[in-house]
């Protein structure tokens, strides 16, 4: 992949997320706050570093995209206003906007359902995991 494309993807992540990765001072408070930390292969503070290094493809392949809760604990507590959680959201968006990359399809739903599932869970899951 050319350096030019790297830079292009990096700026797209920054644009879509509205995050400020360059402001990060590597304190780790995002990762210290994250309820999904143990489930993630790339940790919240590393998301910021990956963007700074331009390695967006690795983020898009990360299983963390499905583990982040978008609970914004990292965004709320970040002392530098970096907004790491929004980077995860943006990377997921970039992935699922590609053809055939949906993380959830209607065919997947029946086996995930139970009688109590509230409508908003299905709504939001499709918003998050498919185009």
């Amino acid at each position: 992949m050319s350096g030019h494309l790297h830079e292009d993807m990096k700026s797209r992540v920054i644009d879509i997320s509205g995050a400020s990765p360059h402001k990060c001072m590597k304190c780790g408070k995002c990762s210290a706050s994250c309820p999904s930390f143990d489930e993630m292969d790339i940790k919240p503070h590393q998301f910021v570093s990956y963007v700074n290094n331009g390695d967006i493809e690795a983020l898009m392949a990360s299983k963390s995209l499905g583990k982040c809760l978008s609970c914004f604990a990292c965004v709320e507590r970040c002392p530098r206003d970096v907004k790491p959680g929004k980077i995860v959201d943006a990377a997921r968006q970039m992935l699922i906007r590609q053809q055939g990359q949906a993380m959830l399809t209607p065919e997947d739903v029946p086996e995930l359902l139970d009688p109590e599932v509230p409508q908003q869970l299905l709504m939001s899951a499709f918003r998050r995991y498919s185009r």
Partner: peptide, 21 residues
Amino acid sequence: GQVGKVAPQPDGSLLVQGVDL
């Protein structure tokens, strides 16, 4: 690494949730 949360516990202790970078 920084601490993200300090959670007071029922036994009176404090659970410190931090990160080792």
